[in-house]
Amino acid sequence: MKIKIAHSTTYKYSSTVPRLVQCLKLYPSVCHNQEILEWETSSSSGKIVESHIDGLGHRVQNIFIKNFSGQHRITSKGILKTKDLSGIVKGLKEKVNPLCFLRDTDLTKPCEKIEKISNEAKKNNKNIIEFAHKLNLVVSNSINYVSGSTTISTSSKDALKQKKGVCQDFAHILISAARFNNLPARYINGFLLDEKNSGENTTHAWVEIFVNDLGWVAFDPSHKKCIDDKYIRISTGFDFEDASTIKGVKTNYNGDEFLDTKVDIENCQ
């Protein structure tokens, strides 16, 4: 499938920002599931500086801005050709051992409810991949999808407690549950083309679980399935915070920051 994406993040500042440094991970992952036909990132102020390719395969870029006021927009856009590999992520260029993704983070610490979820998922499985599918299903049913119900600092425990959340929370719960069962798991940021409901064409988050013999398998607990050719993989990390596509720090700035994002995803078959 050929998918065209245009994504922009706009920052507005209430007063002059003396110094701003940003770190971007906005390039789609290089893997067999997706082929980059065109891709470019741009910034309305401050040029984009290439930094390095990190151990997880992210192409890391920076923006440095001095004495800035007004509006600052970061755009990434391009066209990808995707393949449905039944959820298995193949050909990733990464150097990180999967066992690293057994570590807990503040957003994904296990709790009693995680134990309950995993007990439920453990029944009658022939192998690990079956268990992983079951886990994805149980997690899918553990909370309700309610947009705007959580914040960027909501942990898996918090989301389970309030029984609702968004894709980020589904992902955190599945990660907690997988790691609790000694399966390496990680957070994925990306885009999802949802043709049935074009309003949901948006940035999305899901989970990869490492299964011996298969490698990383991508599950989307928000949609009770594995990923297919409608998913574009951008960045990964231990959790939402670690996987952020844009991180920035302003120095000596006391004003406000307003954020606006815009996404356009279309099937250009």
Partner: peptide
């Protein structure tokens, strides 16, 4: 570096880690 490591750190240098890795 508050961008790469503890974001609440006030003594770090934003962008230092990427400067290092580049």
């Amino acid at each position: 570096d508050p961008i790469t490591f503890d974001s609440s750190s006030l003594i770090g240098i934003p962008g230092l880690f990427d400067s290092y890795k580049s």
